[in-house]
Nucleic acid binder design. Structure first.
Length: 317
DNA sequence: ATCGGGATTGCCT
DNA sequence: GGCAATCCCGATG
């Protein structure tokens, strides 16, 4: 069904003036796809992720490109307070470079902040430090991967603050969707329907599967690791604010008051968010707007957000 | 050595 | 929307 679109896009990419074919194509494709803004005064969300075409030959790159190095976020980025970092992650691109050189990319659209100390819902509550959660106490940018329910993994990134880390909950697939689908389908029942693109990474354990993040990535440094890193989205204007929804975190109901803290953050209206909290969205009706510089004065009109939600739901269905 | 619970997911009704 | 699957980790004795 997307054949025409795919073909058209492919032609477009191939028409790009490129020297180093494979890696540059990958980057250019990524760039094209980032037209899906999901920012707030967004007349975007125009491009459904189904259109985020990619083919086997374009997802391979056998060396770091200049663009990779330019957009990669370093130590400085991670060195900020937990809640601040959780919000700053939104819109950034998580990249996984596989053993065969293929690069998988997904835009972060949902996170949760887990503070140390007082935060009873955190693995590091009360300053508790164990073999499992050691990465939470390591320098900001350290990856914390832990197994959950015996069968799944969750990926966090440590922030500033003793024992604090950010849980990555959902990504918008940008590059390498066929590989992601393959990785995700492997553990599913045979004969199950094919996963839509928006279902590839819309959950903390799903994104670990889709990006092939193994347990042994625990304690690695997201700022310097050759196999996994974070990038700024080159097509996003840093001055343009995101519309961020703050909602209670998920799956921690047993932790009383701390379960109510609105420390889950997601991009309003984005189809790849794992769980939409309508009540939280009413309470912060397009009011939690901020950009890379922090909170903003500008308030986005609510109907803009609504419009984009609807449009997006149609296009991603 | 044993035990209880969990920052989830997928399938079924 | 309910609920089973599944097992590692950490606490306890």
């Amino acid at each position: 069904m997307c054949d025409n679109i795919m073909a058209g896009r492919k032609r477009k990419m191939l028409a790009m003036p490129i020297a180093a074919a494979a890696p540059e194509q990958a980057v250019n494709k990524h760039k094209n796809q980032t037209d899906v803004k999901l920012k707030v005064p967004l007349a975007k969300l125009k491009k459904p992720i189904e259109k985020n075409v990619q083919s086997a030959e374009t997802e391979r790159s056998h060396y770091f490109t200049k663009t990779d190095l330019q957009h990669r976020l370093g130590q400085d980025f991670f060195n900020q307070p937990c809640i601040s970092l959780a919000k700053a992650f939104l819109g950034k691109v998580l990249v996984r470079r596989c053993a065969d050189g293929a690069e998988l990319r997904g835009r972060i659209v949902e996170t949760e902040a887990y503070l140390g100390g007082e935060d009873r819902a955190s693995h590091s509550a009360g300053g508790k430090r164990t073999e499992r959660n050691t990465a939470m106490f390591m320098k900001p940018g350290t990856i914390y991967v832990y197994p959950i329910y015996g069968i799944y993994l969750c990926m966090n990134v440590s922030s500033e603050g003793e024992g604090a880390a950010v849980l990555l909950r959902s990504l918008e697939p940008l590059q390498g969707q066929p590989i992601m689908r393959q990785l995700r389908t492997a553990r599913r029942k045979e004969g199950a329907r094919e996963l839509k693109d928006k279902e590839l990474c819309n959950g903390p354990s799903k994104l670990c599967q889709a990006l092939n993040i193994p347990r042994c990535f625990d304690r690695r440094d997201l700022a310097s690791d050759p196999e996994v890193w974070l990038e700024r989205d080159p097509s996003v204007n840093p001055a343009e604010p995101y519309d961020i929804v703050s909602a209670p975190r998920i799956g921690i109901e047993s932790h009383g008051e701390w379960a109510k803290k609105p420390w889950r953050f997601y991009l309003r209206g984005h189809p790849c968010v794992s769980v939409v909290n309508k009540e939280a969205e009413r309470q912060s009706e397009s009011g939690n707007v901020m950009n890379d510089s922090g909170p903003s004065d500008s308030v986005v009109q609510s109907d803009t957000g609504q419009h984009n939600v609807k449009r997006t739901q149609q296009e991603y269905s």
